[in-house]
Computed example of a mutant assay.
Amino acid sequence: MLRYTKDHEWVRTEGDIATVGITAYAADQLGDVVYVELPEVGLKVKKGESAATVESVKAASDIYAPVSGEVVEVNAELGDAPQRVNEAPETGGWFMKLRLSNPAELDALLDDEGYGAFTETL
């Protein structure tokens, strides 16, 4: 199950690992992604901190950690193929995987219905 932030990041958890990316809505708003700056493996991030950067033809945007944890993997494919963020934002265009340090933070994120309702207000 995906969970979402109001900053348009998504999280999918498997055990204590959370995969993080941006939503299709965010990818659409950004336009064509041309560069992605990923965090270093081992970096510890807190919920709400900038963890990555995505640059498009329109703008550069920070990607915020939707939950706290340690970066255990990054999607190195995005270095050579940043367009994957546009092509498959909620699957192959993921940014990083975090080992959760506070799984209870997931409870504060939006579900599909809540995120859908939120985007309708934008």
Rank of each mutant, 00 (worst) to 15 (best):
R3V: 08
R3L: 15
R3Q: 15
Y4G: 04
Y4V: 10
Y4W: 05
K6T: 14
D7F: 05
H8D: 10
T13E: 11
G15S: 02
G15I: 09
D16V: 11
I17L: 11
I17C: 00
A18F: 09
A18N: 03
V20D: 05
V20A: 02
G21H: 04
G21W: 12
I22H: 02
T23L: 03
A27C: 02
D28E: 13
Q29K: 15
G31L: 08
G31D: 11
D32G: 08
V34G: 01
L38N: 05
P39E: 09
P39L: 06
E40Y: 11
V41K: 14
L43K: 11
V45Y: 01
K46I: 02
K47H: 11
S50K: 14
S50C: 10
V54H: 05
S56C: 12
K58C: 11
S61F: 06
S61G: 13
Y64K: 14
P66N: 09
S68D: 08
G69K: 05
V71G: 07
E73H: 10
G79L: 09
G79Y: 12
G79D: 10
G79W: 04
G79C: 01
A81C: 12
R84F: 11
N86P: 12
N86F: 10
E90G: 03
T91S: 12
T91P: 00
G92N: 14
G93L: 08
K97F: 07
R99D: 02
S101T: 15
N102G: 11
P103T: 06
A104G: 12
A104H: 09
E105P: 07
A108I: 05
A108M: 13
L110S: 03
D111A: 05
D111H: 01
D112Q: 07
G114F: 00
G116H: 13
A117V: 08
A117R: 13
F118G: 03
F118K: 02
T121C: 06
L122K: 11
